[in-house]
Simulated scan of single mutants.
Amino acid sequence: MNGINYAPNDALIVVDVQPEYWSSSADVATSFPEFPLKLQRCLSWARSRKLLVIWVRCEYNSSNSPWLGNFAQLNPEKQSTIIFDPEDLSWEDFAVPLRGEAMVVKSSWNGVSNTSLTPYLKRCNIKTCFMCGLITSVCVQHTAFGLFEAGFTVKVVGSACADRGRDRHNMALELYGGGRG
C-alpha cells in the first residue's frame, strides 16, 4: 500500500469478507493463504490515514434476491442462501469492523444496486473508493463497476482481494487495469 496516493475524501470498501466466502470456502483460502495478512495491512493503511472504512455484506434469500433460483440451479454445489442477522454476525478474526465503521447489506453481487452505499458515500463527500475483499471476479468486480457507474473513481487493491483461484483473480484484475495496490 506504500506509495498509493490518497485524499481525505477517499474510502476503503471491504466486500464480503465473511465466513461464507473465506473460512467456509477451501478453494479461496487454499489459493490465497496470504489474504488475511494483506487485508489486515490494507485496513491498517486506511485506518491510520483516517479514511472512511465501509463493510459490504451480503444477505441472499428468496424474498430479496430474485436471481437466487437460477443461481442454485446452475450451481447446486454452492451455498446460495445467506441470512443476515445483525444480532449474530460472524466475522473472520482478521477482518472485524471497528466501532463507527459503516456496514451496508446487499441482496445481489453488486453492493451498489438497491443499497445505501452510494447515498452514504455522497453524503460523506467521497470521491475515490479503494476496493478490497472477496470474491475478486464476482462481488468485488460488480461493486467496483457499480461505483464507477455512479461517478466514483475506483481503485482495486488487488493484493487485498481473493477469488476461487489465481487465474480467475488475475483475469478480473486485468479488467481493472492490473489491480493497483
Score class of each variant (00 low, 15 high):
residue 1 M to L: 11
residue 2 N to L: 14
residue 3 G to Y: 05
residue 4 I to H: 09
residue 4 I to D: 00
residue 7 A to V: 00
residue 9 N to Q: 12
residue 9 N to I: 05
residue 12 L to W: 09
residue 23 S to Y: 11
residue 27 D to Q: 07
residue 28 V to I: 12
residue 29 A to Q: 02
residue 30 T to W: 07
residue 35 F to C: 01
residue 36 P to I: 04
residue 37 L to I: 03
residue 40 Q to L: 02
residue 41 R to A: 06
residue 43 L to V: 01
residue 46 A to I: 11
residue 48 S to C: 09
residue 48 S to Y: 03
residue 50 K to D: 15
residue 50 K to C: 02
residue 54 I to T: 09
residue 54 I to F: 00
residue 62 S to D: 14
residue 62 S to E: 10
residue 64 N to R: 15
residue 67 W to I: 04
residue 68 L to W: 05
residue 71 F to K: 11
residue 72 A to S: 15
residue 72 A to C: 03
residue 77 E to N: 08
residue 78 K to E: 13
residue 79 Q to N: 15
residue 79 Q to T: 05
residue 81 T to V: 05
residue 83 I to D: 03
residue 89 L to K: 01
residue 93 D to T: 02
residue 94 F to K: 03
residue 96 V to M: 04
residue 96 V to T: 06
residue 98 L to G: 03
residue 98 L to V: 10
residue 100 G to R: 15
residue 100 G to V: 07
residue 102 A to Q: 11
residue 104 V to L: 03
residue 106 K to Q: 10
residue 109 W to H: 00
residue 110 N to I: 03
residue 111 G to Q: 03
residue 112 V to D: 02
residue 112 V to R: 00
residue 113 S to F: 12
residue 116 S to T: 08
residue 120 Y to R: 01
residue 122 K to E: 14
residue 125 N to W: 09
residue 126 I to C: 15
residue 126 I to V: 14
residue 126 I to F: 14
residue 127 K to L: 08
residue 128 T to N: 11
residue 129 C to T: 12
residue 133 G to K: 15
residue 133 G to A: 11
residue 133 G to C: 07
residue 133 G to L: 11
residue 134 L to W: 15
residue 134 L to Q: 07
residue 135 I to L: 12
residue 137 S to N: 03
residue 138 V to R: 04
residue 142 H to L: 14
residue 144 A to F: 07
residue 148 F to A: 01
residue 149 E to V: 08
residue 151 G to A: 06
residue 151 G to V: 01
residue 151 G to D: 03
residue 155 K to C: 10
residue 155 K to D: 12
residue 156 V to D: 01
residue 156 V to H: 01
residue 157 V to Y: 15
residue 161 C to V: 02
residue 162 A to V: 10
residue 165 G to H: 09
residue 166 R to S: 14
residue 167 D to I: 03
residue 169 H to Y: 04
residue 171 M to L: 12
residue 178 G to Y: 09
residue 178 G to L: 02
